Amino acid sequence: MRRLKEYPKPGPENSMYYWRSYVNFFKVAKNFIFISIGRYLPFLGLKRWLYRYGVGMKIGKNVSLGLMMMPDVLFPELIEIGDNTIIGYNATILTHEFRVESFKTGPVKIGRDVLIGANATILAGVEIGDGAMIGAGAVVTKDIPPGVLAVGVPARVVKKIE
């Protein structure tokens, strides 16, 4: 079950039209600059530092964030990544979603010793349990239990990891 908080749109246009009423423009500009730099940094320690202290992500020890990994620009502080986790090339972690009639936010919690494959997308409001593996290109739309392999669009558990 995704944990999402819903906000009604303040006017007649779609919710994305009002993005500045949900989050401060200067916060988003700062996040965009730090995340854009971080996406290309090859130095894992510096990248972790930048995302922890620059944009407020909660990142554990020895986390490896792959090249071009894209955290949410509006609410990166809602992302928590456990120790010794690997997030692959060009993976995306979202903590918000715009719908026509509303705007939603939700925290993303990724456990310890998790592997997220290249080009995977993690949607707002989900948890990925300790020791789970997410296949390349998967779209995680619901919670993934600990110690399993999940693949596909949407991601489905295919086996327990021994």
Results as ranks from 00 to 15, higher is better:
L4F: 06
G117S: 13
E127I: 09
V55R: 02
V151D: 04
G129N: 08
G56I: 05
F98V: 05
V28R: 07
A132I: 01
L74C: 06
A120I: 05
V108D: 02
K27I: 10
I128F: 00
I110Y: 03
S36E: 15
G131V: 08
L44C: 04
P10I: 08
P107H: 12
P146Q: 07
N31G: 06
T85K: 03
N14C: 11
S64K: 11
G88E: 05
G137S: 10
R48A: 08
V63K: 00
R48S: 07
G137T: 10
L78P: 03
D130M: 10
V63W: 02
P71V: 07
K9W: 10
L46R: 08
I144C: 01
A29N: 06
V157A: 03
G82M: 06
R2G: 02
G152M: 06
K159R: 15
P146E: 15
D83T: 07
P12C: 09
F103G: 09
T85E: 02
A150I: 10
P146L: 09
V151L: 03
K61N: 14
P145K: 02
L4E: 13
R52P: 13
K109V: 09
K109D: 00
E13F: 15
P107C: 04
A29L: 15
G56D: 12
R112Q: 13
A124L: 09
S36K: 15
I122P: 01
G54Q: 04
S102T: 10
F25M: 06
E80Q: 11
S21L: 04
L44P: 09
D130K: 01
Y22T: 05
E101P: 00
M16Q: 10
V63H: 05
G45T: 04
I86F: 03
K47H: 07
D143A: 01
L65T: 10
I87W: 00
R99G: 11
F75H: 11
T105L: 11
I87K: 00
V157K: 02
G111Q: 05
G88A: 10
G117I: 13
R48H: 01
D83C: 06
G56F: 08
V148G: 03
T141N: 01
F32K: 14
L74T: 00
W19L: 06
I161C: 08
K58Q: 14
L44R: 13
G82F: 02
P10R: 06
F32M: 13
M69C: 08
I110H: 01
P71C: 08
G152K: 09
A91Q: 05
G60V: 12
F75Y: 15
P154K: 10
E162H: 12
I110N: 04
E162Q: 14
A91S: 12
L123N: 06
N24G: 15
L123W: 02
V126Y: 01
F75I: 00
E101L: 13
T105D: 09
L44Y: 12
S36G: 15
M1N: 11
Y53D: 13
L149Q: 04
A118G: 09
W19T: 05
I59M: 02
V114W: 01
M68K: 12
P8I: 03
V108C: 04
V158F: 04
L41V: 10
L149P: 01
G66T: 12
G88L: 11
M133T: 13
E162M: 11
I87S: 00
I110R: 01
Y22Q: 07
W19M: 04
E127G: 03
A132K: 00
G11K: 05
